[in-house]
């Protein structure tokens, strides 16, 4: 049973968290049961999890897209923020447009913003062979500082000392789809993006080229496929998905641009993509579960526990997944032989 390793990894991660909490003198059992019931068994928790799942899911789709070409885009956080910045620019300066025009424009701006930033790293990789891990990651810090400059400076809300812009006009806010919650249209957008990615990769010529290049660049080149162009395209899409995620987040959930994002966004997103083994439907599930973990983290903070506990649990889960990888492969091999 290759699938068995997922619950096993989660179990080990929770056990590690248990240990840490016990060491700090907390009653881990009640923390877990409370967190679980609050996140997954209450409307509020569930709806908040769905809200969190949008940025995570979009980022994970971006990571998975790049990974199809064996590229490691660990700059999704920067691209996310850059997309949010581009969308915010439109929201602040074109606030007279009606929502039907402004929201799509913002989405395109977010997508292109994040996409071009990642494509720049793709260009360096394709043209000069510069490792994309390093460039995408370093740009996270640059974009973070850039957004910081804006929200502490020219874009800061008038008369405010909080580092954030004014609240977006109603036309720049994605509508809520379940009244009484914060769940917004971005959730639908996420599902549509996932479906589009799936269709693109499996049914389009360009998607085919990306799969071929990802599997064997040499064979792809011999078959007349332009590898460098595929790298550019895939990075554009990868960053674009993250950037669109940034737009959905500022327009749907936060309604303003703020300094700093979710801590360790990149890593969490990476984990979602890795847990799902780049399977797009799996990413949605993993994104939802990890979003639940994030929301559980907020509850734990209310209970006086450090939010970093969630990060540790995620790290341990990721390591357990690596540890179980040989088991999973063996199981798959045996299953393959039996068939």
């Amino acid at each position: 049973m290759p699938g068995l390793i997922y619950p096993l990894a989660i179990f080990i991660a929770l056990a590690a968290g248990w240990l840490l909490m016990a060491m700090a003198g907390h009653d881990a059992f009640s923390v877990y049961t409370q967190a679980f019931s609050k996140v997954f068994l209450s409307w509020h928790g569930l709806s908040e999890t769905l809200v969190q799942a949008v940025p995570l899911g979009m980022g994970a789709l971006g990571v998975a897209m790049a990974a199809r070409l064996k590229l490691w885009n660990i700059g999704v956080e920067g691209q996310f923020m850059f997309g949010a910045f581009c969308a915010t620019g439109l929201a602040l300066y074109l606030d007279t447009l009606p929502a039907v025009a402004l929201l799509p424009l913002m989405l395109v701006a977010g997508f292109m913003g994040g996409g071009l930033l990642a494509a720049l790293c793709g260009l360096l990789r394709a043209r000069l062979g510069i490792n994309e891990i390093v460039t995408t990651l370093l740009l996270n810090y640059v974009v973070g500082l850039w957004v910081g400059y804006l929200v502490y400076g020219p874009w800061q809300a008038l008369g405010s000392n909080v580092p954030e812009t004014t609240e977006f006009a109603a036309a720049a806010q994605l509508p809520v789809i379940f009244p009484g919650t914060r769940v917004h249209l971005g959730l639908v957008a996420l599902l549509i993006f996932a479906a589009l990615c799936h269709f693109f990769l499996n049914n389009s010529v360009w998607g085919y080229r990306i799969r071929a290049c990802g599997d064997n660049p040499r064979a792809a080149r011999t078959a007349g496929i332009d590898y460098k162009r595929s790298v550019l395209l895939v990075m554009l899409l990868s960053g674009g998905l993250a950037g669109a995620g940034g737009m959905l987040e500022v327009s749907g959930a936060v309604h303003r641009l703020q300094d700093g994002t979710t801590p360790f966004f990149t890593m969490t997103v990476f984990m979602a993509a890795w847990l799902a083994r780049l399977d797009l439907a799996g990413i949605l599930v993993a994104g939802f579960l990890l979003a639940g973990l994030q929301v559980a983290g907020y509850y734990m903070q209310f209970m006086g526990l450090p939010s970093a506990l969630v990060t540790v649990i995620e790290g341990v889960a990721l390591l357990s997944m690596i540890a179980f990888e040989p088991l999973r492969l063996n199981a798959l091999k045996r299953a393959g032989k039996g068939a």
Partner: peptide, 13 residues
């Protein structure tokens, strides 16, 4: 396998 085929893809692809 190095230049003629994509080893991870199926026969159709």
């Amino acid at each position: 396998l190095g230049q003629g085929l994509c080893p991870g893809l199926g026969a159709c692809d």
